[in-house]
C-alpha cells in the first residue's frame, strides 16, 4: 500500500502518518530528509523523535539518494518529508531526475510506503524563479505519487479529507 499525506503546517500530517505506519507489524523505517545541522532543525528533529518513541521505528537521517538503502527487512517505510527531499535535490547538489529516482526507488522497493509532503500551492504569490521552480517540481512530484498511491489524504488541523482510496 502507498499512502500520500499532504496538508498545511501543523495540520497533524506526521501524527497521521505515524499512526498509519504504526498499524503495520514488524520493523518500520523512518526516513528523515530534513537537514540536521541548524539549531532549529535539531529541535524539530528531537520533537519528532519523541513522538515516535515506543513505535518501533528505525530512524535514518538522509537528505537524498536512497538507492543504497536496503528496504527489504522493513514492513513499512515512512518518508518525512517530500518537500525537503525536493529542496535537497534542487538546491543541494541534486537534480529533478534524482528526485524522481528516489521516489521510484521507494515505490518499487518499500513493502508499504507512507509519504508526507507539505502543501504550498495556494498563496498565488510570485517568488523568485528558483522558488517557482521548486513549487512546480514538488507539486508535479506529489501528483506523480498521487497517481500511484492507494490512498491520498489531506490533513486539515487534525481532520482528514480522503481524496482517493481509504484507510
Amino acid at each position: 500500500m502507498i499512502y500520500l499525506i499532504s496538508g498545511g503546517v501543523k495540520s497533524h500530517k506526521s501524527k497521521r502518518a505515524e499512526s498509519i505506519a504504526g498499524s503495520f507489524n514488524g520493523e518500520k523505517l523512518y526516513i528523515a530528509t530534513m537537514e540536521n545541522k541548524s539549531e532549529e532543525s535539531k529541535k524539530r528533529i528531537e520533537k519528532h523523535k519523541a513522538m515516535r518513541k515506543d513505535k518501533n521505528f528505525k530512524t535514518l537521517e538522509i537528505e537524498k539518494d536512497f538507492e543504497s538503502i536496503d528496504l527489504s527487512c522493513f514492513s513499512v517505510v515512512l518518508l518525512e518529508c517530500l518537500g525537503n527531499l525536493c529542496a535537497n535535490h534542487l538546491f543541494n547538489g541534486g537534480s529533478i531526475n534524482g528526485f524522481y529516482k528516489d521516489i521510484d526507488y521507494l515505490i518499487k522497493n518499500a513493502k508499504n510506503l507512507v509519504i508526507v509532503t507539505n502543501d504550498i500551492s495556494y498563496d498565488g504569490l510570485y517568488y523568485s524563479k528558483e522558488v517557482q521552480e521548486y513549487i512546480k517540481t514538488l507539486n508535479n512530484g506529489v501528483s506523480y505519487i498521487a497517481e500511484r498511491a492507494d490512498s491520498v489524504i489531506e490533513m486539515v488541523y487534525g481532520n482528514m479529507i480522503i481524496h482517493k482510496g481509504n484507510l
Binding site: 502543501d119 500551492s121 498565488g124 513549487i135 512546480k136 514538488l138 507539486n139 508535479n140 501528483s143
Partner: peptide, 8 residues
Amino acid sequence: IGGAYHNK
C-alpha cells in the same frame, strides 16, 4: 480550480 501545479 485547484492549487498551483496540481495537474489541472
